[in-house]
Each structure stands twice: as C-alpha cells, then as structure tokens.
Design a protein around this nucleic acid. Sequence first.
DNA 1: ATCGAGATTGAGAATCAATTTCAAAATGAA
DNA 2: TTCATTTTGAAATTGATTCTCAATCTCGAT
Lengths: 165, 165
Amino acid sequence: MKRVAPRKSSAATARERLASWISARGLKATRQRDLIVDTFFSQTGHLSVDELLDKVTARDPSIGAATVYRTMKILTDAGLASARHFEGGQTRYEAALDRHHHDHLICTSCGSILEFENERIEELQDRVAEQHGFAVTHHKLELYGLCKRCQEKDEYFRKRFPDPR
Amino acid sequence: MKRVAPRKSSAATARERLASWISARGLKATRQRDLIVDTFFSQTGHLSVDELLDKVTARDPSIGAATVYRTMKILTDAGLASARHFEGGQTRYEAALDRHHHDHLICTSCGSILEFENERIEELQDRVAEQHGFAVTHHKLELYGLCKRCQEKDEYFRKRFPDPR
DNA sequence: ATCGAGATTGAGAATCAATTTCAAAATGAA
DNA sequence: TTCATTTTGAAATTGATTCTCAATCTCGAT
C-alpha cells in the first residue's frame, strides 16, 4: 500500500510560523488574523487585498478592510507572503512559503499571471549589478503581453471581423 | 576648419514632433504645453510630475498640476516620453527620443537611478516568453539595492559606530 | 481681423489604494 | 480577575492621479 508522508497544509504551517513570529515580538493572536491568514493560504495565485477581503467577509462580514491590510503587512514582514506591484495600481500578494524566487509573465488582456524561473537571467543581472558596483537586494522582472489564449481570441475576431478600411 | 553638423536640441526636436502629432489628431498647440515640454526636455533623468511641476511653476506660476499630468500623458502617447513606475508610488517620466530600450538599477537609499542595456538578458526573456506562448509587448526589469556611494557611506558609519551589543 | 466650434485650462472635487486615528473590545501574563 | 497592552472597525486622512466645469484659448473658415 502506498503511503504519502503526512504533510501539513501550507495554511497550517503558515499559521504556526506566524504564531511564533507574533509572540516573539509581543504581538497578540486574534481570531480575525487567523481567519485572514487561513483564507489567504487556502487560495492560490496573486491576490489583491480587495479580492482577499471579499473571501474573508464571506466567512465573517464583520472583518474590516484595514485589518486585512494590516495582516498582509505582518505576513509580508514575517516573510510568509510577498507583495507584488504589477501594473494597474493595487498591490497583490502571493504565498511565500519555501518558495524559490521567480519572475512573472502578465497577460494585459485577461490578467492571468504565469511564473517562471531562469537562472541564467539571474546570473546576468548579478553581473550587471557588479559592473556598476551595485549591491542588489531585490529585483523585479515582469514581461507584459498577451497569453496564448488571448492571442487566439484576438486572431479569431480578426478573422471574423477584418479591419474595414 | 572643422564643422560640426548643425544639431537641433532634443527639446526642439521633441517640440516639432509633438506639434505634428498634435495637429494630426485635431488637438491644439498651447503656451502651457510648450512650456512644460520645453522644461521636461531640458532636464535629464527620471522626473516625477511633482519635480517637473516645480520647475514649470518656477517659470510660470499659473500653470496647474492637472495640465502637467495631461501633457505628460500626451507626450507618452506620442512616444516622446516613457512612464516608469518604480517602487515608491509616483510615476516618473524619462525622455524617449531615439532612445534604445534599457533597464534600471535603483538605489533604495539615495534614489539615484542607473540605466543599463543587456542584449543577452533580452534574448533570454524572449525565449522564456516563447516557451510559454506569450506575445510580449513590453517588460520591466529593475534591480534594487545600494549604489556604490551608499555602500561606502554605510561602511563608514559601521566603522565609526559599530553595532553595540 | 473676426467668428465660432471645439479643445484646453486651472481650481477644486472626486477617486482609488493604502494608512492613520481613535474609542471600544480583546488578549494574555501575573 | 486584573490591567497594561495590542487590536479592531469605522471613519477620516493621505498621496497620487483623474475628472468636472465654467472660463478661456486656438485655429480654420470667413
């Protein structure tokens, strides 16, 4: 019989880590924090505070936006989430539990986000920084354009409704 | 006798190009637009609207912020300036006259910005996009950290005021 | 030079994401 | 239980940017 090693859900792990991070600096555990963290880690992808707030208030309508903002800040400081500032104004958060660094491909039509890693690019970046005497702490590489699906959609419409001119 | 080919200032060129772009779509030339464009192209670097507004109102205090915002948008649409959204909230504009694409090194301490080009990185980006079936329209590569000068300053202070512990 | 449709302006209001304020409620060590 | 401290939700505030609108300006046609 095949056995899968018992594996804690990432939400559970995150809650534990957050707990120690919180008590380590005299903060306090609260019901709303737990609910927000739980909700956040049960999602995947890159959530805006708005989107997260929606899911959270679905579970407990009394929770306010400010608390979600505050909690995501804590999660970020604790290294359990990372904040991304893509084009379009609002901050998006993604889980950062034992995750490698990675960059993003962002579809400007449907908003979908793909992730990728590329060691060669990272190396070249380091070299560039070195050449300029820069000590890099973090970086941002984002490729914007049309995802495959949106390209196909585009093509389809162009065929059916050719540019009248 | 050596003769240097007469060369128009980039500000002059920009004004010309803007003029044709503007008349081509039924817009109108105005005194404040000219002044803003002139001021913008007489500067170098990456200006925020605030910084530009300061320089502009120094020349004509009656010009409002909204007009500067509007003008920079036109300049961007005309391809004569490009908008950058570095960390820290406000949009910064840089002249885009006959400029190659380039990326940025941004010092998080003093705010200075270095530019660089790297063909190899661009190629690798294209390859990544291709692998994911993405049609990239633009991208953003920003390296954040400490510039040489700020590293040296840091070092200096650490020597004189070693971490007491 | 004058006219007039339409574009532009400046000031202030509005918006949007995010942060701060503050009084009331919750937490947790003693 | 007590009580200093932290947290919360709602509302106010901030900061960047955009919008609104009445007054003004521009420019091609007279």
